[in-house]
Amino acid sequence: MAESLAPALDQGAGMPPTRLAAYRAVLSSRIRAQRSYRANFYTDLAGSFLIGFIELAEVWILFHNVHALGGLTFRNILLVFGIADLAFSVAQMVFGHVDRMPTFLRAGTLDVFYLRPQPVLLQVITSEIGLRRLARALVGLGSLAVGLSLNQIHWSWANAVLLLVTILSATAVHSAMLVWAGGVQFFLVNGAEMTNAFVYGGRYAATQVASVWSAPLKVLFGFVFPMAVTAYVPALHLLGLPGPAWLPTWLAWWTPVFALWMWGLALFTWRQGIRHYQGGGG
């Protein structure tokens, strides 16, 4: 029966497990649980793949009608879509269940997290992992790979580093969006749809050609929730194309800063939310 014990305990018998063991124990058992219902797991994977695929199809249909949109062709947009959807899917895989906060709050699940010796937010994040989203990430990755091969990109070290930094920062931005939305749920009853406007609207915005946006959209999704700089602006930089008004291509190197901003906002919101929940400040 020993093998059914969590792998977290597979260490020296007398040694207490490390700090990370708790998270590893939960996550590895979540992964096993998801994979043990095989039929469900494959349906979930297929569904997730289809979501990514159809979102790509929606972009393609527009380009099927016109050759270029806002200065980009379909080949170009594959690059934008690829970076954006890959980052979004990975963020969803790791942080996606944070959008179950309304349920956690209603069912009192959060109280249980308080009884355990780990930070509450870390427990919420590591309470689940959405493996099915790997399939969707695959659509993003595929689109990115095709986009990279079909476009003329000058492959310098700087551009390679930029691509890597962009993907990581974009993932961080989308992750922070989910944590931010989770924090907002402490204040709003039935408010998930409001935050979805920005979390999922943000994903939709990140895959778009931001040059066609109106000024308010540029403020909202260019800077407040910095979507344009997670994929569109870096893609312009890689393609050697000029940026539209308000979004110069040198901003491409600023994605990590935008990621920091978004995480700052997310953690601040979460903290205020926790305060509100405990009744300290509100």
Partner: peptide
């Protein structure tokens, strides 16, 4: 999860030696 697995996760959460 089986009850047993819940217990082993909780053991890890509380950092109990094996």
């Amino acid at each position: 999860l089986p009850v047993r697995e819940s217990f082993s996760i909780l053991a890890a959460i509380h950092r109990l030696a094996r």
